[in-house]
Amino acid sequence: MSDSSGGGVTWLLVVVGWVATHYLSLKREKRKEVRSKLDEIRAELSALESEITVFHTNSTFSLEKARVIVLHMQRISSDVEREPKLKKDTSRFRFDLRKAATLVNFDKTAFTRLEHDSIVLDKVASAHDNLVNQLERNYILFYRDSFV
């Protein structure tokens, strides 16, 4: 092999190595970014569940708290919608959480103070867990076979 062709192979290896390293680095960064987004969504969901509990166990109806819950729920749902790697099959679970929290006892005229072990709050907790489980499932399935 001549010196020039040997040099060509070396350069080719350098370029291929750089491309591979760059590609794997990008993949690793994206994975970290998605994990970070998922942790953020989980924290927001926990905060939302606390807000829902406070609202339903309050002695009087609070329009302000009701608005905060509805807005918070929409922001979380939109965050999930924006993350294609996480949103798969979560639509029903987001709908279940909104329904559990805001379908009953969410009207000023029919509001009653609920106990912490009420069916409504039980459904909220289940819907929260189901949504988190689906988000985690999506993360695991997407990155399961990845080695970076």
Binding site: R67, M73, T102, L103, F106
Partner: peptide, 10 residues
């Protein structure tokens, strides 16, 4: 819209 409650949607 700044969110919808299920009671409204239903």
């Amino acid at each position: 819209v700044r969110g919808f409650g299920s009671s409204f949607l239903e």
